[in-house]
Every structure is written in structure tokens, then in C-alpha cells.
Simulated scan of single mutants.
Amino acid sequence: MKRNRSYYIILVLILFVVTYSAYAAYQKQKNGPVFLDNHVFQRYNEQWGLWVDLNAEKKSLLEKASEFGILAQEVMEINNLKESDLSRLKRSIFFPYSAEYMRGLQEKELFRETVESPIDQFIWPVLPNHKSRISSRIGRRWNTWHTGLDIAIPKNSVVLAAADGVVEEAGRSGDYGLAVKIYHHDMNHFHTVYGHNQELLVKPGDVVRKGQIIAFSGNTGKSTGPHVHFEVRFHNVYLNPENFLTPYEEGVATSIVGFAD
């Protein structure tokens, strides 16, 4: 009887330790910083690297792969490319970084920005930038209803996923131009939309993380200047994005930290 009681006490203690550890890990995730992709550190398919427009850089895939210390075949595989695709490539492709290249970036003391964001809160879809500003809010505008928040920002700026989710749509979408729609299962089944981009870096079915680059900003669709049109939807009801974000000045103000994840 005493032996059974001892086993019971040990089992209770083990369950307590496991439960407490899980709770502590959740709290750390809930209140921890979110690392933001920028023009040096970018993520795709859980790998670190960089989106590169080979035509703009006037370099071959082999030359750029060699620069990052990886094989051309690795680049082909992560981008689902065939040899026949290379001659007519008109978009950026993702180049993973080798471990050696990553160490070199750390030695140069390059940095990533962070924002403090609870797990159940969206982040602003743009990086801190003194040239960015809110140019239009949700509400009546020009005798129509403006369905989201416009953030004026220079063309080809980084556009970030506001929360973890799965890409539902990515492509040309009428007045939205090149747009991305993300489903956030863990955020009460909300959707977010990012419109008027210059180039999309994700496709339907991609799993994205909060702070991950999903596009380069632009002026496509019905637009009067380069900006990100950001929407929050719940069952196709348009909600005010600012109700789910920190105040603008606070939302884009970040601390600078060393390379970490």
C-alpha cells in the first residue's frame, strides 16, 4: 500500500513538472520578442537566406549560389525550378545561406529588428522605416468604403506576415493588384490581406511565420502610389486593423538585437 502511494506521489510530481514546463514555455512564446525579416535575413520553408532577382543583379544562378556557399541544385530544389525555367525567369528566387555564410554575417555584426508582440496579437506588416506613414484608414473615402489600412512606403520594401498562418491566396486580384491572403487558424480564424505589392514571395499552401517576408511592396492594381493595403477580416467582415495592432508609433519602434532566433 505504501509503495503504491509513493508511486502516486511521484506520478503527481512528474505531471506537475511537465505541466509547469509547458506553461512556462508557452508564456515565454506568448510574451517574447518577434524577430523580423529584413533585407539581409529572410526566411522561406524554415530556411534562412535571401530573395534575389538575378536579372536585376545580372548574375547567373551558379554565380549567386557560389557567393552564398551553396550548390545550384539546392537553389533549384527549394524553388521547384527546372533547367528549362532558368532562361525565362522573371521573378526573384530564394537562395539559402550556407552555415559558413551565416557565420560571416554574424562576424560582421549585422542585426535584425524585433518587436514585442503577444502570441495572440498582430504585428505591423512593414519594417521600421522613417519614410513609412499611414496614408488612409478604414472607413468612407471618395464615396466608397475603404476596407483596410494603407501604409505608404517606398517601392520594394519588405512586407511581413502579421501573424503565423497559411497562405490561402497569392496572385493578381483585381483592384488589389498583386495580393496575399493569409488564414490565421490560431488567431480566432482571422484572415489578413496585403495588397498592391510589386512581387509576391509566397504561394498558396505555404506556412508562414509572424514577421516573415511575404512580398515586396509596390503600386500594382488600383493605387495612387507605393503602399501596403492591409486588411483584417473575420468571416468576410472587414474589421479595423488598428484595433488589433499596437499604436502606430509604438508598433514600428523596435529594439535592435544581435542575430538570433
Results as ranks from 00 to 15, higher is better:
residue 182 I to F: 04
residue 210 K to Q: 04
residue 201 L to Y: 06
residue 138 I to R: 15
residue 185 H to D: 12
residue 161 A to H: 14
residue 192 T to L: 04
residue 65 A to T: 01
residue 107 E to F: 07
residue 256 I to E: 05
residue 87 S to I: 07
residue 47 Q to S: 12
residue 208 V to D: 00
residue 224 T to Y: 07
residue 214 I to E: 01
residue 58 K to E: 09
residue 181 K to Y: 00
residue 209 R to Y: 12
residue 144 T to N: 11
residue 105 L to R: 00
residue 173 S to A: 15
residue 175 D to Q: 09
residue 84 S to G: 02
residue 136 S to V: 02
residue 125 P to Y: 06
residue 130 H to F: 11
residue 182 I to Q: 02
residue 206 D to Y: 11
residue 239 L to H: 01
residue 218 G to N: 07
residue 153 I to H: 03
residue 130 H to E: 15
residue 108 K to W: 04
residue 245 L to F: 07
residue 35 F to Q: 08
residue 37 D to V: 13
residue 92 S to E: 15
residue 106 Q to R: 13
residue 153 I to R: 01
residue 31 N to H: 15
residue 135 S to G: 08
residue 221 G to P: 08
residue 14 I to E: 04
residue 10 I to V: 15
residue 237 V to G: 00
residue 78 I to H: 10
residue 171 G to Q: 04
residue 123 I to K: 01
residue 188 N to R: 15
residue 81 L to S: 08
residue 48 W to V: 00
residue 137 R to E: 14
residue 229 H to L: 03
residue 247 P to V: 10
residue 19 T to G: 06
residue 19 T to N: 03
residue 1 M to K: 10
residue 136 S to P: 05
residue 21 S to D: 03
residue 1 M to D: 14
residue 229 H to N: 05
residue 123 I to A: 02
residue 12 V to H: 03
residue 158 V to E: 10
residue 74 E to F: 12
residue 38 N to H: 06
residue 122 F to N: 05
residue 237 V to D: 04
residue 233 R to I: 03
residue 28 K to H: 09
residue 259 F to Y: 14
residue 17 V to D: 01
residue 110 L to S: 01
residue 116 E to M: 08
residue 86 L to I: 15
residue 17 V to A: 04
residue 95 F to A: 00
residue 141 R to L: 07
residue 5 R to T: 05
residue 107 E to Y: 10
residue 180 V to W: 00
residue 172 R to Y: 14
residue 142 W to R: 13
residue 137 R to K: 14
residue 1 M to L: 11
residue 181 K to L: 05
residue 37 D to S: 13
residue 221 G to T: 08
residue 227 H to D: 07
residue 145 W to Q: 13
residue 119 I to Q: 05
residue 210 K to R: 10
residue 107 E to Q: 12
residue 84 S to I: 13
residue 143 N to L: 12
residue 62 L to M: 08
residue 162 A to C: 13
residue 140 R to L: 11
